[in-house]
Design a binder for these strands. Structure first.
Lengths: 345, 345
DNA sequence: CTGTTAGCGCCTTCAA
DNA sequence: TTGAAGGCGCTAACAG
């Protein structure tokens, strides 16, 4: 910067002012400085700026896994919003581990990020608290954190699940099983609650299995359920992984869907329309959630601490009717679930 | 830091030394400093460290899209390696746009990242050059950059494509069509070359279509090809997106796979084993590529500029035989393609 | 083994 | 409208 100043015959302050537009500089001087900048190909050292000023123009993003398509979509939206605002994003995967998450959050704080967006690791264990972050804004999304003072953006997990189970009931199913990962995951549990509510309202008995993490366990659980005296006639799954495992188990057992067993899942994915049969699912607005979380974070960062703390934004989901539920549509039928739906998220 | 020094009755340098283990400090003093650090919950300002020192302990990662599962897997591997080494990762999506990519690379440079890993945007346009980066190490992966001085990690695109087409030929197919996105994409073009080589070796005529970006265009192209006087009996696709579009077109036309038309694709994906029929594909080692690229980058960063510049590492791919090619296996059969395979990547 | 001095590149403050 | 001084938090280089 000194070089630029010298070349333009001005003080470093003038260069700084031209760079930031902080104060009025005469057009002529500004021009001279600009020429010097171009000539020297001078680029300000962002590190020094961040160090000196209060803003690093960087936000942190912590998600469980980068390779999970749902999380990746969220992350993409966050990075896009950040770029539009001229911010950089420091990203890290927590591997769904609360300790890793905590350590990485601290590391980001040490790097003086201006804010952090996080999809918390398994909620029961997450050690993220408002206290840890101090003045640094934080917003959690997809799952809440235990500290209610932290903003959170969620989707209608319970209401979505409720609706899709209700749909199965409308198809005449009386014995519907819920297949999930672990109830310790907020979203899975919320979806299970929706399932349970729908069954209770219809006066039906619940039947669930948690542990669809592996293909083997899922297959075994399904075989067990199907060999009961009155086996389920329909399955709902908690998320894409469970959907994959249950679906392939069903196919592997040579079961015809939906004629013998109906099948629906929570969370849409690229290929859900191309399986045989195409899958009826609840679709979550992944990118919208990322955008919303990022926007909320920037509100906090740029407008300062808002008066109201502990915001909770709930985004609507959609039901995508295809064939696995028993419907006979030719193409996808998308049914938006408004916030005022049967159950609250 | 001054506070810590005062509390421990030492100079700031001693605190610094305890923090970094730079020089030997008496156990007793170190203990006192440590206590003060804990008591004050002192955390070093990484920004100041980076600013002062030569290292920011941050690397940049630029990929076309975060939501593409293949890229996301690569990114996950890169962030994992970085975390193991104590580095942070600044990530950004170029949206496959060379200008965005260039701007973001510059921004990272301004932030003084210690190195950059990049999956370049459409190679013909990428403006990434060794000159832009100066002393900052860069490694490209998945696709090369035009500047041959930059290290690059690739997979056996041509050899993989060659092998899978050869497999189709062994199944007796004589008219095989290649369906791809754009030849302007390095990987797509390399795979097309492999296809072409395999056909030439067998004395067969090529038939290709580029533009499978949308479902409609793909369907139209397929209908056109199938209405030729001697239509193809097998299709190969260039990547997952093309696979999805071709596959659903074929299904939509009521064509039986593989009895009427055989079908194979480049690039495996989570659901390829669950479609009807399961898809035979070439599988790329996404995570391994990310790990390799990151490791190479850290070599450069930590060991300094290596003598040999312009490294080119080519990773092996595998052929995953399922049913869509005409094979009758019960489960996946994975055939690794060694580097010494028929065609060179 | 430990402390002092100095300066990284920038911007806030104050004076001209 | 412009410039000079000073310091952000840290550490290299030197002195003790």
């Amino acid at each position: 910067m000194g070089d630029v100043a010298r070349l333009a015959h001005v003080g470093t302050m003038t260069v700084s002012r031209v760079l930031n537009g902080t104060a009025r500089v005469s057009a002529e001087t500004a021009q001279r400085v600009q020429t010097a900048i171009d000539q020297l190909r001078y680029r300000p050292n962002e590190l020094a700026r961040a160090f000196r000023g209060q803003r690093s123009r960087t936000i942190g993003l912590i998600i469980p896994y980068l390779y999970d398509p749902f999380f990746a979509n969220c992350a993409h939206a966050v990075t896009t919003v950040a770029r539009e605002r001229g911010y950089s994003v420091i990203i890290t995967a927590s591997d769904e581990d609360a300790d890793t998450e905590y350590i990485e959050a601290e590391r980001m704080l040490q790097r003086h990020v201006d804010g952090i967006a996080v999809i918390p690791a398994r909620s029961r264990h997450s050690r993220l608290t408002k206290a840890l972050f101090g003045k640094t804004p934080v917003v959690a999304f997809d799952r809440p954190v235990s500290d209610p003072a932290i903003d959170v953006v969620l989707v209608q997990n319970t209401a979505g699940s409720y609706s899709i189970v209700e749909h199965l009931i409308e198809h005449g199913h009386r014995r519907i099983a819920f297949m999930g990962l672990s109830r310790r995951l907020f979203t899975i549990n919320a979806r299970f609650i929706g399932y349970r509510n729908a069954l209770q309202k219809a006066g039906l008995q619940e039947s669930s299995f948690f542990g669809c993490d592996s293909q083997q366990d899922t297959l075994r659980a399904i075989q067990e359920k199907l060999s009961e005296s009155s086996p389920p006639t329909a399955f709902v799954t908690s998320n894409t992984l469970a959907t994959l495992h249950v679906f392939s188990s069903l196919l592997g057992l040579g079961i015809k869907i939906p004629s013998e067993i109906a099948f629906v899942g929570f969370d849409d994915f690229e290929l859900a329309a191309l399986t045989a049969p195409p899958l009826t699912v609840i679709r979550q607005p992944a990118q919208e959630m990322g955008r919303t979380a990022a926007s909320l974070l920037f509100e906090r960062i740029e407008r300062g601490e808002l008066p109201k703390t502990g915001n909770r934004i709930v985004l609507s989901v959609e039901m995508v009717l295809r064939r696995s539920c028993g419907c006979k549509h030719r193409t996808d039928v998308v049914i938006p679930l408004s916030k005022g739906s049967a159950a609250v998220a």
